[in-house]
Amino acid sequence: MAFSRDSFVLDYPEYFPEPEYDFSKNKLSKEKVELGRALFYDPILSKDKSISCSSCHSPYNAFAHTDHDLSHGINDEIGTRNAPALFNLAWQKSFNWDGAVNHLDMQALAPITDKREMNEDLKNVISKLQDSKIYPELFYDAFKDSLITGEHILKALAQFQLTLVSAHSKYDQVKKGKLEFSEQEQKGYKLFQKNCSSCHSEPLFSNYKFANNGLPIDTTLNDFGKGMISKQRTDSMVFKIPTLRNLSYTYPYMHDGRFRKLNQVLKHYSEGISKSKNKSSNLKSNIELSSNEKVDLIAFLLTLNDKEFVFDPKHQYPREVLLSK
């Protein structure tokens, strides 16, 4: 990341596309990013001050939730889903497994409010922050206004999350010509390009569209994904295509966390594709993969792990700020 006096430039490789996020409406600054970071780690956002964003999105898991297949703590709809990893969010067009949230700014509203409707809840958060020792000053530093508003809370949280850029994996080093794939990884890369990249497209490893990848419905959850939001039959069992970066940190996999291991995922793609009518045309039937090919493919997927991102202290709990409360 590069710092100038108050602007903050998002650093990303030149082979990344232009971000989707409109930075002109929320110009990055160091102060806003740091305010967002404090809010992200502060349980003051929850009603009983017990849960923060990082309770479900841990930095050491590339900001996913690994202990549980389903995240707990918020309303029913959200409680039926696995908390996704958070990085490269500036390139994403819509959020959540079903795309119900249309803008990164607005994402924080769902977890902040534990009821179906927000009503007074964000107002409560505002008054708790306004009464705190540290926040009026942090908001002043960031927005030149110590009067805290919903808009400013959401924009600061978005800013911190926008700076979570993962682009230092082995794959990235190979792209930049600094490292080379092993023979096995190279074979896996070819298999990946043939079978997976129509949906998990490089370099972000998702085209961030929605698809039905042939998972059978879990009848204990009956989660129909995008179909429950759009109320269109063609969207039934359609979910956001997730990125495949940092898979070693983000297990379990899929919207409901049904698979704990990558070989279970490959077993699904090679043997378990359901006959659902809505299935993507990029995945008509089981993908043929020998057991050697599966090993090669996994070797390639592991080159997408970005240790530098996962252990970057800039993204971790802001001790200096939060412990001074």
Binding site: K25, N102, H103, M106, R116, E117, M118, G150, E151, H152
Partner: peptide, 24 residues
């Protein structure tokens, strides 16, 4: 306006006129 992110004043989501679980 519905897809333009967080806004202030009459459009501030703290007015209780914004859905939390689904944007809009």
């Amino acid at each position: 306006t519905n897809v333009s992110g967080a806004m202030g004043g009459d459009l501030d989501p703290s007015n209780g006129m914004y859905w939390a679980w689904q944007s809009g």
